[in-house]
Design a protein around this nucleic acid. Structure first.
Lengths: 187, 187
DNA sequence: GCTATAATTGAACGAACATTCAAATAAGTG
DNA sequence: CACTTATTTGAATGTTCGTTCAATTATAGC
């Protein structure tokens, strides 16, 4: 009855994520989004709406990906070795898998672009905090984590994201991250 | 013999800092810089160069201000009460004096605008790290701090900068910051 | 293979952008 | 007061931006 869609939505969002992540919201142009996705402006607008709407979908898509990683791969990993170290190593591994750059949500939180749905970002960060809390409670040294300790951990994880951008070697950065989180959580 | 300058350079840089800090490099327009400084485009270009050059001067100006705060006010404060707590409280005070928003250098490090002189940002962050190190060594509990511990502290301070942007109350944020830094440094 | 319908195309739009420069202005010197 | 020289003015420049939409194309059902 009708022509079918020539693209896969997740593919388009993956590619758009890459550009927004690299350049930030303000510095990314619709023209670049067209180039990277292979879609003409009309198709992009018809399928995803304007720049702001595309970005909102990118944020949703990205957050779901992160949460999935933590709640499936992370949970399985830590259930195999129920130690604080395994949680820490998993978190750092996740950071380096995304190319040793700070999380898109954190970048956007600081950029605060108009109409970036700051509230959306905050709610996603809350979900991630909860998931990391659950992961930590699987470790035998922890078992229960209160709100204050979890906040300290999140604070440290955010710090590592920034620290990564200072461009030190992976070895050095991992050492700092492990040292800091261990010092903070070992009891 | 000639007409004299109608503006004070530090005033102009202060005002420009405000705009770049609030909106980021990419989202700030020359037109906004003209409005906030009260200068016409021609004057801005004649006195400070193009957008990139203005930004470079803003970064220099901002960094000098921070370093001055730490190396004079901070050093005096901690020399009066040589405790780890006084250092921590001073650092947090500094953050809240600038309006509870993350440091311009950190924002720029993540934004990575083209021609933002990323190398300049990194060198300023190194200077700040050194100054905070000196401050910590004034505390009697510390006296000597090795590179690794200082890195952990910087990592935590960066984390607090992000944490602040999550919009929790000042009381709660300060509690997290003090708890985290104490846990990390008390021995 | 024709038709109906939805997706795609890409040139075109006005708005906003960074930057320029000839003309106007102000002030120190003789 | 006139002259010289540096500063300021602000309209104008060409470019790039986000966005639109009439025309074109592809496909599923008959």
């Amino acid at each position: 009855m009708t022509r079918s869609c020539a693209y896969e939505v997740p593919d388009v969002l993956d590619r758009a994520t890459e550009v927004f992540w690299k350049q930030g919201y303000a510095a990314t142009t619709m023209s670049e989004l067209c180039d990277i996705t292979g879609l003409q402006p009309g198709s992009l607008y018809a399928g995803f709406g304007n720049k702001q709407a595309i970005f909102r979908q990118v944020i949703e898509h990205y957050s779901e990906k992160i949460l999935r990683e933590i709640n499936t791969r992370g949970v399985i990993r830590v259930s195999e070795e129920k130690t604080l170290d395994s949680v820490i190593k998993f978190i750092i591994e996740l950071m380096y898998e995304s190319g040793a750059r700070s999380c898109l949500l954190i970048k956007t939180l600081l950029e605060k672009p108009v109409g970036s749905e700051q509230q959306l970002i905050l709610s996603k960060l809350n979900l991630i905090e909860q998931s990391i809390g659950s992961l930590l409670e699987q470790a035998e040294e922890i078992q229960n984590i209160n709100e204050r300790d979890l906040s300290s951990v999140m604070c440290t994880i955010y710090g590592i994201h920034i620290y990564i951008e200072r461009g030190y070697s992976k070895e050095r950065t991992i050492k700092i991250a492990v040292d800091t989180l261990r010092q903070l959580l070992n009891r």
